[in-house]
Nucleic acid binder design. Structure first.
Lengths: 217, 217
DNA sequence: AGATACTTGTTAGTAGCAAGCAAGTGGCGA
DNA sequence: TCGCCACTTGCTTGCTACTAACAAGTATCT
């Protein structure tokens, strides 16, 4: 769709520009093909050719299939974590967690291609040496760290029960998010994506509230 | 380890016994190799040979790599769902959910190889045509159905808030379980498996309790 | 003798590498 | 400032090792 204007537009560019362009194109093609065919059947040959280049460029540029997927994860995860922090803004505590849930389902609706691709790669990473497991672990860790900070702030503000362990709560919260997404990926139609989000927020509010505010409600 | 007594023991068996034995051996080899090397790098050649046979038997018997993994999922999931219902027993409502969580972490401790293999396959299934996605979907669906039944029973008994939607609650509960396992698979050491289980049970108790029993506690 | 478990020969297709081609880049002398 | 030329870098193509899958063959049971 966007690959027809490549030959003309490529002329007269600096080498750096050409490389950046081909990188971007191949990452986009990889996202499309991973969603269309899955990780295994998305071949480097087809990725290179769909991007408008030869069968060998992807290997040459990214070193290996895993290298390409590392780049895809970096590209999508960066954009995505940015969206998150932007959307959650200055909120903290339970409000931040709820905003995070909303942000997640909004992102899933707005760029389903990217979300699907990212999570397909995430869930494929658990093999003993997928080659990009470390990158996935980094993203998970960063996300959990954000959640830990929100929970801590909520406790400090007296909103969240001080008995809550922030780290474990973060693992629990993230488990929700990932498992929720997972089920949606396996059976896109059998899962009430939106409804579960509402229930999740309700559950967070009732189970995290500090004793004082729970009595007050 | 168990593959050294194959040649002698194979003689003098009925055809059906031979086939059943080789099936079992290959499924076991597949589990080992999936955990050792991951789905992609676990080759049919090595699976067949580790089981004590030729490079071609796995394809011949199961038709394809996906066919073999379908058989692995069936074998492990059957055993596993059985363990579950046995362990949960006649419990229902919140107690059943908590027993399910305990059962999960016990199973993960007792047969980590099987749990890892099963979930590696589960998480690899989300590709658009992994060839065994339907089987995974079946298992997920069956598990959710159990949870729905427990929640319904809990509502009927007046223990769980009638405002809870059983189906959505089941999706939420399963999301927890899967996401929790996922994080454990990606970072076996960075996750407090046991601690999260306790927090999860606590959360279920506080957020599902019917208003009446919540006041009573 | 026939059926069934299993093996082996072969094919199409894949990732990755290395050698080669062509287009852009920078320095030097005028 | 201009133009040439060595050099770098983006990209392609030929090749190898390996894989899943299949078909035709062998050995074992019934």
């Amino acid at each position: 769709m966007t690959a027809d204007t490549d030959a003309p537009s490529r002329a007269g560019m600096s080498q750096a520009e050409r490389a950046a362009l081909s990188d971007r194109r191949m990452i986009d093609a990889a996202i499309e093909l991973v969603v269309e065919r899955g990780v295994e059947k998305a071949t480097l040959k087809e990725i290179g050719e769909r991007a408008g280049y030869s069968r060998g460029l992807a290997t040459y540029r990214f070193g290996s299939k895993a290298g390409l997927f590392r780049a895809v994860i970096r590209a999508v995860a960066t954009r995505w974590l940015g969206e998150f922090t932007r959307h959650v803004g200055a909120r903290s505590g339970i409000a931040a967690l709820c905003a995070c849930v909303d942000s997640w389902s909004r992102f899933a609706k707005e760029s389903p291609l990217h979300v699907r691709a990212l999570h397909i790669l995430f869930y494929q990473s658990i093999g003993p040496d997928s080659g990009y497991r470390e990158r996935v672990a980094e993203v998970l860790e960063r996300q959990r760290a954000d959640v830990v900070a929100w929970v801590r702030a909520g406790i400090a503000a007296g909103e969240i029960d001080p008995a809550v362990d922030p780290r474990r709560q973060a693992e629990l919260f993230c488990a929700f998010i990932y498992g929720w997404t997972y089920q949606w990926l396996v059976q896109p139609d059998a899962v009430d994506f939106q409804g579960v989000a509402e229930d999740l927020k309700r559950m967070l509010r009732t189970s995290l509230a500090a004793p004082a505010s729970r009595r007050a409600s």
